[in-house]
Write a protein that binds this DNA or RNA. Structure first.
Ligand SMILES: [Mn+2]
Ligand SMILES: [Mn+2]
Ligand SMILES: [Mn+2]
Ligand SMILES: [Mn+2]
Lengths: 221, 221
DNA sequence: AAATAAATTTAGATAAATCTAAATTTATTT
DNA sequence: AAATAAATTTAGATTTATCTAAATTTATTT
């Protein structure tokens, strides 16, 4: 059985691969997990011995099929737990990640299968990220970043690209939660900021940076 | 923050104290946790340094107030998780313990408070053991062991003294689950075995040993 | 193409939790 | 009260995961 530490490394490598593509560097992992580069090098050797990664000295790593399947299983568990915490225990989307970070390491196939059933086989977690099914399949979805919308466009929030707790609390304060409907009232071309109207008619000014971190599904006109 | 290992030691000491009373020996802990006596001695020194236990060389240990409150918190978490697994995820009472043994180590006060609320502030877990409330208070209950009942007595199963998975599955097969009503049809004085009738009229012969491990609430006549 | 900077690995330590085997203390027999 | 047995502790190692500082390799400047 893989230790919690090994599981966290494998998940980190998977997510860094998704974001950057190609091979993942020692320093990227070091930063992601907040451990020294020296410790990462040590661990990479062990993961390579266990055939979870392919490791070329000085050149970074990528997951083997075995490592990838472990990573997907971890992500499945993490996101199912986040969904449970949010939907059943009413814990905010800014707080679920930290708790799921612990819950994801509980070992029991039955537990996860039953949890999945209890939640009604959800396809997306509280941040709008897809939850892989028992076979590791992710659901795809049409989505664009809010900053690509034009004046007059109507859309619905479907996810966030940034998971920082402060950002999520900020969105909550503007009623910009998952499924919120919105209308682009104005878009400034010089700085990319957008004025959006949310349900009930409230208007909010979003910075370009904020708009680049919100995924939406555009409505047909 | 206490490690999972420390938490398991503290919980074991609490439960051994409850069962035996007085102070707990190195060998008792060693047996309970399936670790060598030498390892236990090492750990006892550390726990004493952290003021979680009072330790007298060669004479055993007992919990300090701090240790006891940690133990009660662990038991609260363990039993709430067992209740969740059983009531919400439909996992059998013979399987919940092992999973809760892991879940009990997740650190988050919010999580436990919300879980407690979600479950409706249950007073007893799937084995009929009391769940301490947020202040550490256990609910007391009138209960006797099934082997103390007489012919003609009516009662309801409220708990089990033995948590062994095989015993629990055996009880399931006889419909002797929590809340099951029963009537003592016959009691053999020479070996203590009892013939009981359960709901629907089915009869089962229980050995003295089995009868000594089932808690019941006796009905008034 | 050197020189310099940045990234990575190696060397040497440390802390937590565990083990077996040997020494010591306490309990039980004779 | 000795002798013997049982329980407990100490000594000496091991494994996992981590660190800092030094050495090495790769990348970027001049
Ligand atoms: Mn984690
Ligand atoms: Mn998420
Ligand atoms: Mn445990
Ligand atoms: Mn229980």
């Amino acid at each position: 059985m893989a230790s919690q530490t090994v599981e966290n490394y494998i998940k980190a490598i998977f997510q860094l691969t998704e974001r950057e593509g190609g091979s993942v560097s020692t320093s990227a992992i070091s930063q992601q997990l907040a451990t020294s580069a020296a410790s990462v090098t040590d661990m990479l050797k062990k993961l390579a011995e266990q055939k979870l990664i392919a490791y070329v000295k000085y050149r970074g790593v990528h997951l083997t099929p075995g490592g990838k399947s472990m990573a997907v299983e971890m992500i499945r568990k993490h996101r199912l737990w986040e969904t449970f915490l949010h939907d059943k225990l009413a814990i905010g989307w800014d707080a679920v990640h930290e708790i799921a970070e612990q819950l994801e390491h509980v070992q029991s196939a039955t537990l996860i299968d039953q949890l999945d059933a209890f939640l009604g086989y959800p396809k997306f977690d509280p941040h709008g990220d897809p939850i892989p099914d028992a076979n590791g399949k992710f659901t795809l979805r049409n989505q664009v970043l809010l900053n690509t919308l034009q004046e007059g466009d109507q859309a619905q929030v479907v996810g966030v690209r940034e998971h920082d707790a402060d950002f999520l609390k900020y969105l909550d304060s503007r009623a910009l939660h998952i499924n919120a409907s919105l209308l682009i009232k104005e878009k400034q071309s010089y700085d990319g900021s957008v004025r959006v109207e949310t349900a009930g008619g409230a208007e909010t000014l979003l910075s370009s940076k904020a708009a680049q971190n919100i995924y939406v599904k555009k409505n047909l006109n």
